Simulated scan of single mutants.
Amino acid sequence: MPKALILVADGSEEIEFVTPYDILTRAGFEIQSAGVNLKNENYAHMTRNIRIVPDHPTLSSVSNPESYDTLILPGGAPGAKTFSNSNDVLQLIASFRAQGKYVAAICAGTTALVAAQKLAASSKTESGASQKVKITSHPSVKDEIKEAGWEYSEERVVVDRRVVTSRGPGTAMLFALTIVEVLVGKEKRDEISGPLIVADNL
C-alpha cells in the first residue's frame, strides 16, 4: 500500500487533518503526520482548540520524507499560512511535484501549493513542480489563487495532473476518498465507503 505524509501546524483545521488520516488508515495506507513550526512540539493547537499529537514533532524528524507517495496539506488559515511561509514545506511540495508524486491540499492549504509553484518557477530548472494546474480551495482564498494565474474550479474536489484539491471541512470525506481512489483504485474506495455509510451525494 502507498505511504502518505500529512502535515499539521498550529491553526490547522481539525476535520481536514483527521478525516484524511482516518480514511487512508482504513484503506491500508501507511500514513504519518509531521508538525510544522509548532509552538509546543508535543502537539498542534488546531483551529477549534483541539490538540493533535503528530507522529513526528517536526518535518526534519521524518526519516526520508521523499519516500512517501503522497503529501497532504490540510487547511485552516493560520496553519496554511505557516505552510506557505516554510521553505522546507515549499521545497517538499516542489520535490513531490517534480517527481510526479501526488500532492493533495484542501481549503486554504491550496495556498501553499501556489507558493511552492512560485518558488519552483523562480528557479532556473523547469519541472513538473512549476506547472500550474486546475485547482480549487476555500472561497476565502479564491481571489488569491486566481490572481496567481491558476485555473480555478468550483467543484468540490478537483484532480489534475497528480494534484488533488478540495474546498473545506464539508468536503473532507470526499477529498480523502478521492486520494484513495487515485492512488489505489475505485474498488478500494468502494470497499471502505460501504461500512462508513457514505452518502451517494457526498
Rank of each mutant, 00 (worst) to 15 (best):
1 M>Q: 10
2 P>V: 07
3 K>F: 04
4 A>C: 10
4 A>S: 10
6 I>M: 12
8 V>A: 13
10 D>W: 03
10 D>A: 06
11 G>A: 09
13 E>C: 04
15 I>W: 00
17 F>G: 04
18 V>A: 12
23 I>C: 06
25 T>M: 07
26 R>Y: 09
26 R>D: 10
28 G>F: 07
31 I>T: 13
34 A>K: 10
36 V>H: 11
37 N>L: 11
37 N>R: 14
37 N>Y: 11
37 N>G: 08
41 E>I: 14
43 Y>I: 06
45 H>M: 13
49 N>I: 03
49 N>R: 13
53 V>M: 12
57 P>A: 13
57 P>E: 08
58 T>S: 15
62 V>Y: 04
66 E>S: 15
67 S>H: 07
67 S>L: 01
69 D>R: 01
70 T>P: 06
72 I>H: 10
76 G>S: 04
79 G>W: 01
79 G>T: 02
81 K>V: 10
81 K>H: 08
82 T>H: 09
83 F>P: 02
84 S>H: 05
84 S>D: 01
84 S>F: 02
85 N>P: 00
85 N>L: 13
86 S>A: 07
87 N>S: 14
87 N>D: 15
91 Q>M: 04
91 Q>N: 15
91 Q>T: 11
94 A>F: 01
95 S>A: 13
98 A>M: 06
99 Q>D: 14
101 K>W: 01
103 V>D: 07
104 A>M: 10
106 I>P: 01
112 A>M: 05
112 A>C: 09
112 A>Y: 03
114 V>C: 10
114 V>E: 11
115 A>S: 15
117 Q>S: 10
119 L>G: 01
121 A>Y: 02
121 A>I: 04
122 S>V: 08
125 T>K: 14
125 T>G: 04
131 Q>E: 15
131 Q>A: 11
131 Q>Y: 09
133 V>C: 11
134 K>L: 06
136 T>H: 05
136 T>M: 08
138 H>M: 07
138 H>L: 09
138 H>Y: 10
141 V>H: 01
142 K>Y: 07
142 K>I: 06
146 K>M: 14
147 E>I: 02
149 G>W: 05
149 G>F: 05
151 E>L: 12
152 Y>K: 07
156 R>I: 00
158 V>Q: 10
159 V>Y: 04
160 D>V: 05
160 D>I: 04
162 R>N: 15
162 R>H: 14
171 T>K: 05
171 T>H: 08
171 T>R: 05
172 A>Q: 03
172 A>F: 00
173 M>A: 09
174 L>P: 00
175 F>S: 05
176 A>C: 07
177 L>Y: 06
183 L>T: 09
186 K>M: 01
188 K>R: 14
190 D>C: 03
190 D>N: 14
193 S>C: 13
194 G>N: 12
195 P>G: 13
198 V>K: 11
200 D>W: 09
202 L>N: 10
